[in-house]
Design a protein around this nucleic acid. Structure first.
Lengths: 184, 184
DNA sequence: ACCTGAACACCGTTCAAGT
DNA sequence: ACCTGAACACCGTTCAAGT
């Protein structure tokens, strides 16, 4: 690559593109550095470490998530879409959620949506339930895609076809319970 | 360590103990080898690669999950307990779920439990919803614990105190819907 | 202020050669 | 059959020294 001036913004740009196109396994500090035509140590003048870089990248992954989603179903769907816009998006966001929870903006949006009908404690739990479900669902989708891409597996995603339908089934379950409810 | 004969079983034992005590970041092929007093390459005579090893370790993590859970709530709780019995348990199982889904036995147990009141398609989706939720929930718990242990974070788990209660709130939501239901 | 050079302490995996 | 020696192609991070 061309070796222009290295800036924090260019580091993040390159890291984001690397993640989008090649996935988490190719997103290394050394690779970002060499793509920018610079030695690995140079990056540490602009970012504290890899985790901080990942946190900023996660922010970008979630940046076109509509903060003003009208309802929980569409918020969940938009969250999944944002995660799928990048390879290994769920894994990155999942990690960042532990490291810097405030970066996972869908949690706040969901919290607000639930607050209209639940108390603060339950709204918080409900928001986190949806977030955990979405991250778990998409993580499996993407992990399988990566393994398939790496040739370490060959089956198509189990029952294939309609992951969007299976996904929404889970969201609806959280909201309204499973079809034909019955306790325990 | 003592350098007895290396066997597949001893490799798995050491890997499992390493995971339990030190977490995924210390579980390396080289570390397992040196603990067994052997060169890294020797392991590859007994296991194909690290992923296969992780799959076997995941089996052990889930081995005291009671296959005969009586209801979904206690199955979910037992699943979470099994994941928590080892550091980074959720991350390992989450990966293995994409690599070898059949190893994640709670999916089958849940499927069976749901089959008594749902058709096969919905029972499958319902089981996967619970599995995704549990993996997402525990992954956050454990990631935060690891970051805290590494000194990369210092807050206690957000609202602390009762993760078990928050966890069950989510399980109950999936089963019966949120408190005071209301579509979308 | 910003970057290089060079090191430190690691990875997973392969494979000829030894026993 | 099982393991060593040694390599290949990597990691993240630090830090004196240069400009």
């Amino acid at each position: 690559m061309v070796r222009v001036k290295v800036t924090r913004a260019r580091i993040v740009d390159r890291a984001y593109d690397l993640l989008r196109e090649q996935g988490l396994s190719t997103l290394s500090m050394r690779r970002v550095a060499s793509d920018l035509g610079v030695r690995p140590g140079a990056l540490y003048y602009h970012v504290a470490n890899k985790q901080e870089l990942l946190a900023v990248v996660a922010t970008r992954v979630l940046e076109d998530f509509p903060a003003s989603a009208a309802d929980v179903r569409s918020a969940a769907e938009a969250f999944r879409t944002a995660l799928l816009s990048v390879r290994d998006g769920a894994e990155v966001v999942s990690f960042v959620q532990a490291y810097r929870p405030e970066i996972v903006t869908p949690t706040r949006t969901l919290n607000r949506l639930f607050s209209t009908r639940l108390g603060p404690r339950h709204a918080d739990w409900a928001a986190r339930t949806v977030v955990h479900y979405v991250l778990g669902f998409v993580a499996e989708e993407q992990n399988r895609a990566e393994l398939l891409h790496a040739g370490l597996i060959e089956e198509p995603p189990a029952e294939a076809g309609k992951p969007a339908e299976a996904f929404m089934f889970g969201v609806d379950a959280i909201l309204n319970g499973l079809p034909r409810p019955a306790g325990t």
